[in-house]
Amino acid sequence: MAEITVRRYTAADAKKWNDFIAKKSRNGNFLFDRNYMDYHADRFPDCSFLFYKKNDICAVIPGTLDADGVFSSHAGLTFGGFVVGASVKTMDVKCLFDLLDAELQKLGAKKVIYKALPWIYAERPSQEDLYWLFRKNARIRARLISSTIEPKVTQPSSKKKYYLNKGNRLGLLFAESKDFSGFWDLLDSCLQEGHGAHPVHSKAELELLSSRFPKNIKLYTVTLNGELLSGSVVYISSQVAHAQYLASSAKGRSLNAMDFLMMNETNAFPEVRWLDWGTSNEEQGRVLNEGLVHQKEICAARGVAYDIYEYDL
């Protein structure tokens, strides 16, 4: 086994980091591109690391370290963990953890929060980290359930097909849109009404990220005579089209516009294997929104766990 070394990421490493994520990793994602990660670096100060075999990057881990000594991979992302290359094997991942822990102890860190990559996002099997988390006696901090469908082999229920036909009869139009500002206003009003909250991304941030990643971040809407009824911001990676945001107006709900949108989305991404409509949880998974998960499940979606682990240093 070739010796692995580690060093902390600096801004000068951005190009080689991005090249590794996009071209050389087996479980990379555009969320780990520095042009995505760094948009909120003012709120989540970076503490990422690069790992080398000889002179080549074999793995990276995106991370943040807060004032309380908690290292997260990554506090500003849905998931994180080790991003590894093809040469990395099971015992190598043990070495990655050992090196990471040693570096974090030098920085005064006391705890690690590890947001494991859900398996559907990896291009090749990449769950060696889960084995070593078990060996480290890591605790499950949160487990969310996301609703995922494999459109090429799974058929939605007859009820959902009814909503698709109904929407067509009513003249509903499903299409890609560039009006992120208009959708954000709808999303914000829905979150304010239902939860007294705002979207995780501000309007300016959503527009910025969609402009940086036009092939990966897309908006799909359902309209009637030009009126926005429902919409979905979709994050598209090599394996998964993930609905980052879903929202529907009161009129849209009365016309089943969200059902119409979800049914059309099942045919909108032929280039990926999985369509993931996101989690339906609150309180780190201890509360399930049964109505929301039911709406996804009658589209034939089934559960994928989004796990977050923690261990003490």
Rank of each mutant, 00 (worst) to 15 (best):
Q295R: 06
S146D: 15
H242D: 14
R143I: 12
G108F: 01
R8H: 01
D188Y: 13
G69T: 08
A247C: 02
N267S: 15
K115H: 07
I57V: 14
F20T: 06
Y9I: 09
L228P: 02
I61C: 08
R212I: 03
S189Y: 04
F30H: 07
E282P: 01
A14L: 07
V240T: 11
A175W: 08
M37C: 05
V83Q: 10
G182S: 12
W274S: 12
D56C: 11
D98Q: 09
F183H: 11
E207I: 14
Y131R: 03
D56G: 10
K296T: 06
T64I: 04
D92K: 08
A175N: 10
L288E: 07
M258V: 03
I308H: 08
H195M: 13
S158I: 05
V93R: 06
G196E: 09
R302M: 13
E193N: 13
A247S: 11
K161M: 09
D188Q: 15
L99H: 00
G285C: 02
M37K: 05
L130M: 13
N18P: 06
N168E: 11
T148F: 00
E265L: 15
S158G: 14
T64E: 07
Y163V: 02
R169S: 11
D33I: 10
Q127A: 09
S254W: 02
G76E: 04
E207F: 00
S211R: 15
F49T: 15
G291A: 01
T221A: 03
L261W: 06
A11K: 14
P214C: 02
N29S: 13
F51C: 13
F82K: 07
E123K: 12
P118D: 01
G85P: 01
R34V: 10
Q155C: 13
A268W: 03
G80F: 01
L228F: 00
G76I: 04
C190N: 15
I298N: 04
A197G: 05
S48H: 08
N267M: 08
A241C: 06
R253L: 08
D312C: 14
A86R: 15
D101W: 06
R124W: 04
F71K: 00
A67Y: 04
V60W: 10
T64A: 07
M262T: 10
Y220E: 09
L96E: 01
K15G: 02
K161Q: 11
T223K: 14
I21V: 15
W132Q: 04
E123H: 00
D129Y: 04
K16N: 12
Y306N: 13
A241F: 09
E297F: 07
L186V: 13
K152M: 04
A142W: 03
W17P: 01
T78Q: 12
E103G: 00
A241W: 07
Q127Y: 14
N225R: 15
R273M: 05
G252W: 02
K115R: 14
A14S: 15
K24Q: 15
T279E: 09
A11M: 06
V233H: 00
I21N: 02
E227G: 02
E176I: 05
Y309D: 09
